[in-house]
Amino acid sequence: MTLNQKVKYSQITALLSYLLLLVLLVVSTLITTLPPEASRGLMLAVKIVPLIIFLPGLLKGHLRAHIWLCFVVLFYFTRSVVAAYLTEGDLLESAITATTVLLFIASMMNVFWQKRTGVPL
């Protein structure tokens, strides 16, 4: 497999896992029981907006978007691991954890392979 193919596949994998993470976060917000004074919209915005910021850069394949996304995904990973532990391996939280791991690895490999092709930051 050539280096350009690796870059293409890692970008596709990162984008698909990114979209899956967004869907899983929306689903987890919608099925969560909240107190009456809590706002589902605000809760959803707090979960989704930090990820949506990176969408234009990911669609264009920019290295900096992948690098910064990896930093932000670490927060989602930490939250989902704690939630999965506290819910004794809830399927949704475990799926969010696995998706964050996949997204992190795909983005980091994309950065690694793009840098080897000579793409500047």
Rank of each mutant, 00 (worst) to 15 (best):
N4K: 09
Q5F: 04
V7G: 02
K8Q: 14
K8F: 10
Q11R: 08
I12H: 07
I12Q: 13
A14D: 00
S17I: 01
Y18F: 14
L19W: 10
L20H: 02
L21S: 02
L22E: 02
V23N: 06
V27L: 12
V27Y: 09
S28P: 01
L30R: 03
I31W: 02
T32F: 11
T32V: 12
T32H: 09
T32K: 13
P35I: 04
P36T: 00
A38K: 08
S39F: 00
R40H: 06
R40D: 03
L42I: 12
L42A: 09
M43P: 00
M43Y: 07
A45W: 06
K47F: 01
I48W: 05
P50H: 05
L55R: 01
P56D: 04
P56K: 03
G57T: 04
G57I: 04
G57V: 02
L59Q: 08
K60P: 00
H62W: 14
A65R: 01
A65Q: 01
H66Y: 06
I67K: 06
I67A: 09
W68H: 08
L69R: 02
L69Q: 00
F71N: 11
F71C: 13
F71D: 13
V73M: 05
L74C: 15
Y76C: 08
F77E: 09
R79L: 14
A83S: 14
A83Y: 04
Y85L: 14
Y85D: 12
L86S: 13
L86D: 15
L86I: 14
E88S: 14
G89T: 04
D90H: 14
L91Q: 10
L92E: 08
E93N: 12
E93F: 11
E93W: 10
S94T: 15
S94P: 00
T99I: 08
T99R: 03
V101H: 03
V101P: 00
L102D: 10
L102V: 15
L103C: 09
A106N: 11
M108N: 12
M109K: 03
W113C: 07
Q114E: 15
Q114F: 02
R116V: 12
T117S: 12
L121N: 09
L121F: 13
